[in-house]
């Protein structure tokens, strides 16, 4: 992808600059096409309103005794240092929810990378039914999680299809109300739902692996498995890094699935930080504590992303 390289626009500079000194000054300050700034203005305003200022506001809220007040009421929010963080992390539920996300990521991320690469590599060599297979792979990704959770809820319910199939082998208590199975089921569900997106990413990356490498490896006697390991896997490494990063960020955002599938239970076994942020921040009126949890979560994600970049990104 040559996207990042900025193209040189061969505008005839002399023609414009010859007009009058005012124009020349304007061009020097704003560039040749100041209209560009005007065209981008709505987007920049949007970014400031929806991303930049809320991020700053989030940090401010986390360090102050913040509460919901009636609109227009004149209230003061005293600075409290790290009190919100201390309050949040002396709560066992909060610690547990971070552990739950850890379990989720340990199942979801490796499963996602392995399955999406395998399926993409297989799909890449297929000639028949290509369109059908591609659509069927990404259909869960484009469908609302609320709709799909509705189905999984019954598939994995106490007297659901899965338990009916397993018969005496069905876990007791059942999947979604089982302390040690609730989070793994959610992790498998999210892997299944998101896989199509990562398959598309890998398919794009596979187009960039030079064919000659396979031919060369083949004439050198490398079998399919060997080719996969020494040509495909290193060839798609940038995509693998992207899959790792995106699936980690998505996993840390987990809310809808535990909210609908398990209600965070049983006994908080599938509660997540974002779910707790909703409960504490919106339901219990403690936005300052919720904000503190959000900041710790984001710092955690940044550390994991940095480690992934460090160890999976390579030196190129």
């Amino acid at each position: 992808m040559t996207a990042v390289t900025t193209p040189a626009a061969p505008t005839p500079v002399e023609q414009i600059d010859r007009r009058n000194p005012n124009d020349r000054l304007r061009h020097r300050i704003l560039g040749r096409n100041p209209l560009g700034l005007l065209f981008s203005a709505p987007y920049l305003v949007f970014v400031v309103a929806v991303f930049a200022s809320p991020v700053i506001y989030a940090v401010w809220i986390a360090f102050h005794d913040f509460f919901f007040a009636a609109p227009g009421a004149d209230v003061s929010y005293p600075f409290v240092g790290f009190a919100n963080f201390v309050y949040a992390f002396s709560n066992a539920q909060v610690i547990q929810s971070f552990g739950n996300v850890g379990v989720f990521l340990l199942i979801n991320v490796p499963l996602t990378v392995v399955l999406s690469l395998l399926l993409a590599a297989a799909l890449n060599r297929v000639i028949h039914l290509r369109v059908f297979l591609r659509i069927s792979f990404y259909v869960p990704y484009i469908t609302a999680s609320v709709a799909l959770v509705g189905v999984w809820l019954f598939l994995f319910g106490g007297d659901g299809l899965v338990n009916n199939l397993l018969g005496p082998l069905a876990p007791n208590p059942s999947w979604l109300v089982n302390q040690s199975l609730a989070m793994p089921v959610i992790a498998v569900y999210v892997t299944w739902k998101q896989l199509g997106f990562y398959i598309l990413l890998y398919l794009a990356a596979l187009q960039n692996v030079p064919r000659e490498l396979y031919e060369q490896a083949s004439t050198d006697g490398a079998g399919a498995v060997r080719q996969f390991w020494s040509v495909t896997v290193p060839g798609v490494r940038p995509a693998t890094l992207l899959v790792l990063l995106v699936s980690t960020v998505t996993g840390a955002n987990l809310f809808t699935e535990p909210y609908l599938l398990t209600g965070g239970g049983p006994n908080g076994a599938s509660n997540t930080p974002v779910y707790l942020m909703y409960q504490l921040g919106v339901e219990q009126g403690l936005p300052d504590v919720a904000s503190a949890i959000g900041i710790v979560l984001v710092i955690g994600v940044l550390i994991i992303a940095w480690l992934q970049n460090r160890f999976a990104g390579g030196r190129d």
Binding site: A9, L35, L37, Y43, F51, V55, A58, V249, S291, G294
Partner: peptide, 28 residues
């Protein structure tokens, strides 16, 4: 178009994609 701030704006477009919603949820 060629205008001052183009590079910065493109960097912003890329950066915005990695800002996680968890951080924005409460202030928004």
């Amino acid at each position: 178009l060629e205008w001052r701030g183009r590079g910065v704006t493109f960097a912003i477009v890329l950066l915005v994609q990695v800002i996680p919603f968890q951080l924005l949820q409460i202030p928004l």
